[in-house]
Design a protein around this nucleic acid. Structure first.
Lengths: 349, 349
DNA sequence: TTGTATGCGTTATCAG
DNA sequence: CTGATAACGCATACAA
């Protein structure tokens, strides 16, 4: 198919015997009145020529791209599922989502951010930016609105708002749950490198300890400090045989590793140790024993995020036309908390 | 930041006291000669104004986007890792990759394909298209080159080529390996809905049986026919206690489910059953017992794909300038086979 | 209801 | 080495 030039509005106009303006009007179904006849003529011409709109030209002319960007640390696990949902939601609202993974690398992050801004995306969603607030501010020096996910630190000031999974509350609930299941010593198995979101979990964990009476033995572990191979022994040394010990983990993958290393070490789960994760990924439901976890309401999370963004882009009118109640965003820099729900499985029974 | 108009080449030109053409020349470092002085002037002006190139305008003018699209069934597991590698490789070759997940839905697939073509991507990578060859042909009626991944069916004719993981050989190797480990009955636990790629595995499985002497008991199972909860019992009934039975699984996730259901049912892995997966995902390495699997050389796979695509886009010159040997693609409709390598773990020892 | 003319921000082709 | 200027393909006031 050498050099098959794509048909343009001009070609369609000529074929249909109308002007390019009319073609554009027909194809974009605007509020202007059009005669049935011209509509048919144009549509037939377009179909015949295999016309396909050139998004770049359209965006350039309209000065709006209907594209929003999503920056993620990666695609695996939770992030992948989240990205898929965001794509669906974007489409539902007539937008196009460009997803990029930063590989947890601030250089890559910076480059992708730049790329997205060069594309003149209408808005930006960022999940777990590694770069500093200052760097980010320097890169995003235009008016492009940004929404952050799971962000509790300085970056908040850059954003029109943040949407956070309530991992704090999840950890509170987890400790309470473990206590109810008979645990009398507690561990948090975390991930320093996740920064603020790890801190949130720790606060929740502590609050859970407080709520369950105060003085049970408890300790923190981090993947950076204890090799997975030593984990089981480490936990066993610091807990007694008489009552089960509860291990609250950063996420399902940490829980998975933790649980398997315990089993490998010959410790009974959930008899001797009870394990809880977060995110309720596939691995949690299909392990043996199944891993107790917290479910993420992806659809709700994505919907909140988009409605907030669209409100900020001045698209309330469209939302309301679709029968949506206008979504009034919190004050600038405000935060939406998405609640997680406990899913009990064998690992904590 | 209300209405902060982005600086244009025109603004930069004015600021630097040169013409827009010169600005463009400086910023794109073309082969034209430029004086050091103007280069500095332009660069300073651009920096001062916070100039950011408008990709749409550039692509429109250049009639080339330097963007390629990747269509995937989803982002989870293997696909997510593959997407991340493809992004890296795209960048390495100066391209920009837009990744979309089709949710395994041919409607979504069609829409995304359309979107990508509307964006005038230079090329297209498709992994596991659900739509028929005819539908695809109708959508892709322009000259946009397409490369398929893991495709053994009719769609091949649409493409400039295909890059396939050699799952056939992996299954052959797996059966041989299981046989060496003492297995004397064999099962394949598959996934009909994956069509051709499932067939490939089955062929490999059969060939493996043939190579290992022919007449060992063997059987096929499919996730659609046997509920996971019944799997262990089903396998136990059809195999004898005296020698271990080997279960070759569609991928690591199937292997994971299979192994855990067996353990849950009280069967010893790897004593009574040995399990093998494909893809060597995180879950395989961190299960207990660790799951024997086949490693995917993501980087090589992505590199082969891109070099093939770029050759087709007439970019050999650039590749060679970078010191790459020119990659001569197979004949049109040809196939590149990517070998998988066995990773032995406890599940098959 | 339809057509004309102009702008969107770059790149590229020529002359100077 | 540098500067006008014409595309690129579409959308949209403004006229008709």
């Amino acid at each position: 198919m050498a050099e098959y030039r794509q048909a343009t509005v001009f070609d369609v106009a000529k074929e249909a015997g109308v002007s390019t303006a009319t073609v554009s009007n027909v194809l974009n179904r605007r509020d202007v009145p059009l005669s049935e006849k011209t509509i048919r003529k144009v549509e037939e011409a377009a179909a015949k020529l295999g016309y396909r709109r050139n998004v770049m030209a359209a965006s350039l002319s309209r000065r709006k791209t209907y594209e929003v960007g999503l920056l993620l640390p990666g695609f695996v696990g939770y992030y992948g599922l989240f990205a898929q949902q965001m794509e669906r939601t974007a489409h539902k609202y007539g937008y196009h989502l460009s997803v990029f993974s930063t590989d947890m690398d601030s250089k890559v992050e910076r480059r992708l951010l730049e790329k997205l801004l060069e594309r003149r995306v209408d808005g930006l969603f960022c999940h777990g930016l590694a770069m500093s607030g200052d760097s980010a501010r320097k890169v995003v020096n235009d008016g492009t609105p940004i929404l952050f996910f799971n962000c509790w630190n300085e970056l908040k000031h850059l954003a029109i708002g943040t949407v956070n999974l309530n991992v704090y509350q999840a950890c509170v609930d987890a400790v309470v749950h473990l206590h109810e299941q008979g645990c009398r010593s507690f561990f948090y198995y975390g991930n320093k490198r996740a920064f603020a979101t790890n801190e949130q979990r720790i606060h929740g964990f502590r609050e859970g300890l407080r709520l369950t009476g105060g003085k049970h033995p408890a300790d923190m572990i981090d993947v950076e400090d204890i090799a997975a191979d030593d984990l089981a022994e480490w936990l066993a040394e610091r807990s007694e045989d008489a009552t089960p010990a509860g291990v609250m983990c950063f996420d399902d993958w940490k829980a998975f590793v933790c649980q398997n290393r315990l089993i490998e070490g010959g410790y009974d789960v959930p008899g001797r140790f009870k394990v809880v994760g977060i995110n309720n990924e596939f691995v949690a439901g299909h392990s043996y024993p199944g891993i107790t976890s917290f479910n993420v309401p992806y659809e709700h999370q994505a919907d909140m995020s988009f409605r907030w963004m669209l409100t900020h882009l001045g698209e309330q009118a469209k939302l309301e036309a679709k029968g949506e109640r206008p979504f009034s965003p919190p004050v600038a820099g405000g935060e939406v908390k998405i609640p997680l729900t406990l899913v009990e499985r064998l690992s904590s029974r």
